[in-house]
Lab assay of single mutants.
Amino acid sequence: MDALKSAGRALIRSPSLAKQSWGGGGRHRKLPENWTDTRETLLEGMLFSLKYLGMTLVEQPKGEELSAAAIKRIVATAKASGKKLQKVTLKVSPRGIILTDNLTNQLIENVSIYRISYCTADKMHDKVFAYIAQSQHNQSLECHAFLCTKRKMAQAVTLTVAQAFKVAFEFWQVSKEEKEKRDKASQEGGDVLGARQDCTPPLKSLVATGNLLDLEETAKAPLSTVSANTTNMDEVPRPQALSGSSVVWELDDGLDEAFSRLAQSRTNPQVLDTGLTAQDMHYAQCLSPVDWDKPDSSGTEQDDLFSF
Rank of each mutant, 00 (worst) to 15 (best):
D2P: 06
A3M: 12
A3V: 14
L4F: 08
K5T: 01
S6V: 12
G8D: 11
R9G: 10
R9A: 14
R9H: 09
A10Q: 15
A10H: 03
I12M: 06
I12S: 15
R13F: 14
P15M: 03
S16Y: 13
L17M: 14
L17T: 15
L17N: 15
A18D: 05
K19R: 11
K19T: 15
K19N: 13
K19I: 05
Q20S: 14
Q20I: 06
Q20E: 15
Q20F: 10
Q20M: 08
S21G: 09
S21I: 14
W22F: 15
W22P: 10
G23T: 15
G24N: 00
G25N: 10
G26I: 09
G26F: 06
R27L: 14
R27K: 06
R27Y: 04
H28C: 14
R29I: 00
R29K: 04
K30V: 12
K30W: 14
K30P: 13
L31G: 12
E33A: 14
E33M: 07
N34D: 14
N34I: 13
W35K: 10
D37H: 10
D37W: 06
R39F: 09
E40V: 14
E40H: 12
E40Y: 14
T41K: 11
T41V: 12
L42P: 13
L42F: 12
L42M: 08
L42R: 15
G45P: 09
M46L: 15
M46F: 09
M46R: 10
L47M: 14
L47A: 06
F48D: 06
L50F: 14
K51R: 12
K51M: 04
Y52W: 03
Y52F: 13
L53G: 11
T56V: 11
T56M: 06
L57C: 14
V58G: 15
E59P: 12
E59V: 11
Q60C: 07
Q60R: 07
Q60W: 12
G63D: 14
G63P: 01
E64Q: 15
E64G: 13
E65D: 15
L66M: 10
L66E: 00
S67T: 12
A69R: 13
A69M: 03
A69I: 10
A70F: 07
A70R: 03
I71A: 08
K72Q: 10
R73K: 11
R73W: 13
R73M: 15
R73H: 13
I74C: 13
I74D: 09
V75L: 15
V75T: 15
V75Q: 09
T77G: 06
T77P: 12
T77F: 08
A78N: 11
K79Y: 04
A80K: 11
G82T: 05
G82K: 04
G82W: 12
G82P: 11
K83G: 07
K83T: 09
K83R: 09
K84E: 12
L85D: 13
L85T: 09
L85I: 03
Q86Y: 10
K87R: 13
K87V: 09
V88F: 15
V88R: 13
V88L: 15
T89A: 14
V92W: 11
V92L: 11
S93I: 03
R95S: 01
G96W: 06
I97C: 13
I98V: 10
L99C: 10
L99Q: 15
L99D: 12
D101G: 14
D101H: 11
N102W: 04
T104H: 05
T104I: 13
N105R: 03
N105G: 01
L107G: 04
L107N: 13
I108T: 09
I108V: 04
E109C: 14
N110A: 00
V111M: 14
S117W: 05
Y118D: 02
C119E: 04
A121T: 08
D122M: 11
M124Q: 10
H125D: 10
K127E: 06
K127Y: 15
A130T: 09
A130I: 12
Y131F: 09
I132W: 09
A133W: 03
S135Q: 11
Q136S: 06
N138G: 12
Q139R: 14
E142D: 08
C143R: 10
H144Y: 13
H144V: 14
A145C: 14
A145P: 14
A145H: 11
F146R: 13
L147R: 15
R151C: 02
K152P: 00
K152T: 04
A154R: 12
Q155W: 04
A156D: 12
A156I: 09
V157T: 00
T158W: 01
L159Y: 07
L159R: 13
T160P: 00
T160I: 14
V161K: 04
V161T: 08
A162K: 04
Q163D: 05
A164C: 06
A164P: 05
A164G: 00
F165V: 01
F165N: 01
F165A: 01
K166H: 04
K166W: 02
K166Y: 02
V167K: 01
A168M: 03
F169G: 01
F169W: 06
F169Q: 01
F169P: 01
E170D: 08
E170F: 02
E170L: 02
F171H: 07
F171D: 09
F171V: 03
F171M: 04
F171A: 01
F171N: 00
Q173T: 06
Q173G: 02
S175D: 06
K176H: 03
K181T: 03
K181R: 10
K181D: 08
R182C: 10
R182L: 06
K184H: 03
Q187G: 04
Q187I: 12
Q187N: 07
E188C: 07
E188N: 06
E188S: 12
G189W: 04
G190T: 06
D191W: 11
V192S: 08
V192G: 14
L193T: 03
L193P: 04
A195V: 07
Q197T: 10
P201G: 04
P202E: 05
L203I: 09
S205H: 15
S205I: 09
L206N: 03
L206C: 14
V207C: 09
A208M: 06
G210R: 13
G210H: 08
N211P: 06
N211C: 09
L213Y: 07
L213I: 05
L213F: 05
D214E: 10
L215H: 05
L215A: 05
E217P: 02
T218S: 07
T218W: 04
T218Q: 05
A219S: 02
A221K: 05
L223G: 15
S224H: 09
S224T: 12
V226S: 06
S227C: 02
S227R: 13
S227Y: 01
A228P: 06
A228V: 15
N229I: 05
T230N: 13
T230P: 03
T231R: 05
N232V: 10
D234L: 10
V236R: 03
V236W: 02
V236E: 06
P237C: 07
P237T: 03
P237D: 08
P237W: 04
P237N: 07
R238S: 08
R238A: 14
Q240F: 12
A241G: 09
A241T: 06
S243P: 09
G244R: 13
G244V: 14
S245R: 12
S246C: 08
V247D: 14
V248L: 01
W249K: 13
E250H: 03
D252M: 10
D252H: 04
D253N: 15
D253F: 06
D253R: 15
L255C: 10
D256I: 05
D256K: 04
E257M: 01
A258R: 00
F259H: 04
F259V: 02
F259E: 02
S260P: 01
L262D: 01
L262P: 02
A263Y: 13
A263E: 04
Q264Y: 02
S265Q: 05
S265V: 02
R266Y: 00
T267R: 04
N268F: 02
N268P: 01
P269M: 01
P269H: 02
Q270L: 03
V271I: 08
D273P: 08
T274V: 01
G275N: 06
G275H: 07
L276G: 03
L276W: 01
A278T: 00
A278D: 09
Q279W: 11
M281K: 13
M281T: 11
H282T: 02
Y283N: 09
A284M: 06
A284K: 00
Q285N: 07
Q285E: 15
L287P: 00
L287Y: 00
S288N: 10
S288H: 03
P289Y: 05
V290F: 04
V290S: 06
V290M: 00
V290E: 06
W292C: 12
W292S: 00
D293G: 06
D293A: 15
D293T: 07
P295E: 01
P295T: 01
D296E: 13
D296H: 12
S298M: 02
E301T: 03
Q302I: 14
Q302M: 05
L305V: 04
L305M: 07
F306T: 00
S307N: 07
S307Y: 01
